[in-house]
């Protein structure tokens, strides 16, 4: 094995770990509200796409369902909470991008 191969595996596995980390104060949490809709097939498809998208861009972020929140996307970041009434992947991507900076 060469070092590039090692790094490729590392980057691939890193994505798996993004949604498997212990949150801390600097973790950004993207929460999909499911209180009113429940975890539907659409919501599942949305969360998987978002996990993929977020894991490629963040080291310390979680994407999760939250059954205490209604529909939409709520983002917890640096002690602040913002709500976005988005329920599709394209709109959610724009929200995620806002937090990249």
């Amino acid at each position: 094995m060469q070092i590039e191969q090692l790094n490729n595996i590392k980057n691939e596995m890193h994505k798996q770990f993004v949604n498997r980390l212990q949150e801390n104060e600097s973790t950004i949490k993207f929460c999909l509200g499911v209180k009113s809709s429940g975890i539907t097939a659409d919501k599942k498809a949305l969360i998987l796409s978002m996990i993929e998208y977020v894991s490629e861009r963040f080291d310390n972020a979680l994407v999760m369902f939250d059954s205490d929140l209604d529909d939409g996307l709520t983002v917890f970041c640096g002690g602040k909470t913002e709500y976005y009434g988005v329920n599709d992947f394209n709109a959610a991507k724009t929200v995620v991008d806002k937090y990249l900076a």
Binding site: L6, I9, K10, E12, M13, Q16, F17
Partner: peptide, 11 residues
Amino acid sequence: IQEYIGRDGYQ
């Protein structure tokens, strides 16, 4: 082993 590598293993 891939999980170890994913956590900076063998770096």
